[in-house]
Amino acid sequence: MRRRLLWALPPVALLALFFLYPLALVVQQSVRPDRGGTSLQPYADVFASEAFRNALWTTVWLALAATAGCLVLGFLLALVIAFVPFPGAKTVARFIDVYLSFPSFLITLALLFIYGTTGIIGSFPFLTTSWGVLLAEVTYFTPFVMRPLLAAFSQLDTAQLEAASSLGARAPRIVRRIILPEALPALAAGGSLVLVLCLNEFGIVLFTGAKGVTTLPMLVYSKAILESDYPGACVVAVVNVLISVGLYGLYRVVSRRAGA
């Protein structure tokens, strides 16, 4: 037992030093008003501001809409790659793994080069609105749904599909009755990951230059860098962390009950 504790001590110490300690500093700063002392007034000021309420609403609806779009598009694309034979299907599947390593702002810049004011196709003003942010998030995060789906589809017993097809079942029915139930755990895993990532996405919103689109991460940046309101920035950051952790905890509970 002691030997196990000794082996566990270094990673726990590193976790505390590089993650828990900075997080504790953020929480501490959130209750330290500029006038000194310790107070919850920064929380009251932030919660009472219209900017925070608008940022919270924008963050939530963008994250939910992007997650829904990624689930639908990712499921359809994964179906095509996994079950529709075409030249280069394996190459496309491997490219998805590489795509996951791309930074989010790179995809946003690519969309701007294509649809921006000086884009290849032409100028599309919606790119600088919340719909442009939504398009960029769905474009970037869809492979995060496809990856677990492709892994789940690779484990699917094709004999079931062949039997259903031989009995006269058409493709939509096979997808609805056989493939979709098997894909639900992968969809839940990919969707929960995308939801948390969208809630904390900063680069896409920043690089689209969307006017009037302020999410919680953007509000943290605005308060800390532009307004020098560090207690207010820490309050928003704490709220963002609590939402993300709460959603992750909810996902763990739901997945555990579903597994049972």
Rank of each mutant, 00 (worst) to 15 (best):
Leu167Trp: 03
Gly203His: 00
Val46Trp: 10
Leu149Gln: 03
Ala164Cys: 03
Thr214Met: 13
Ala89Thr: 03
Gly249Lys: 05
Leu64Glu: 04
Phe113Glu: 13
Thr117Lys: 13
Arg32Gly: 12
Phe86Thr: 09
Ala24Pro: 07
Tyr221Glu: 15
Leu193Gly: 00
Thr91Tyr: 11
Arg170Trp: 03
Ile174Leu: 06
Met1Thr: 07
Ala169Ser: 06
Gly132Glu: 09
Asp157Thr: 00
Thr59Glu: 11
Pro148His: 04
Gly203Leu: 07
Phe141Ala: 00
Ile225Asp: 08
Arg53Leu: 08
Gly249Val: 06
Ala183Thr: 01
Ile114Ser: 11
Gly232Asn: 10
Ala93Asp: 15
Leu77Gln: 12
Asn200Asp: 05
Leu135Ile: 13
Ile121Gln: 14
Val84Trp: 09
Ala89Gln: 05
Thr118Leu: 09
Pro231Ala: 09
Pro33Met: 01
Ala55Asp: 00
Asp229Trp: 09
Ile120Ala: 13
Ser165Pro: 01
Thr67Met: 08
Leu100Phe: 02
Val254Gln: 11
Glu162Val: 03
Leu77Gly: 02
Val60Pro: 04
Ala183Ser: 07
Ala8Gly: 06
Phe19Arg: 00
Val239Cys: 15
Leu187Gln: 00
Ser255Val: 05
Glu182His: 08
Leu62Gly: 05
Thr215Ala: 08
Ala8Pro: 02
Ile225Gly: 03
Ala16Pro: 06
Pro22Ala: 02
Tyr115Thr: 14
Asn54Leu: 14
Ile120Cys: 09
Tyr230Asp: 12
Ala63Phe: 06
Ser192Gly: 00
Ser166Cys: 06
Val138His: 00
Ala186Asn: 05
Ala55Met: 02
Gln160Gly: 02
Leu156Pro: 05
Gly116Phe: 06
Gly249Trp: 04
Ser228Glu: 12
Ser49Lys: 02
Leu219Ile: 08
Ser49Ala: 10
Ile243Leu: 15
Thr139Trp: 15
Cys234Trp: 03
Ala152Val: 03
Leu109His: 07
Leu17Asp: 09
Leu79Gly: 09
Ala151Lys: 02
Ile121Phe: 09
Ile107Lys: 10
Ala8Asp: 10
Thr67Ala: 03
Gly37Ala: 04
Pro33Trp: 02
Ala24Ile: 15
Ser244Val: 13
Val60His: 13
Ala159Asp: 14
Val84Arg: 08
Val236Ala: 06
Ser192Phe: 00
Asp157Gly: 00
Cys70Met: 07
Val238His: 11
Val31Glu: 10
Leu219Ala: 03
Ser104Thr: 12
Arg53Trp: 06
Phe52Val: 05
Pro33Cys: 01
Val194Asn: 01
Phe18Val: 14
Leu40Glu: 09
Leu71Ile: 15
Leu150Ile: 12
Pro103Asp: 13
Val241Gln: 08
Leu134Glu: 12
Gly132Ile: 12
Asp45Thr: 13
Val27Thr: 12
Phe95Ala: 12
Thr208Lys: 10
Ala152Ser: 09
Gly168His: 03
Asp34His: 02
Cys70Phe: 02
Pro22Cys: 08
Leu180Gln: 01
Leu219Gly: 08
Phe52Ala: 06
Ile121Trp: 11
Phe126Ala: 09
Phe47Ile: 11
Asp45Ser: 07
Cys234Lys: 11
Arg257Ser: 06
Leu156Thr: 10
Ser101Gln: 13
Val196Asn: 04
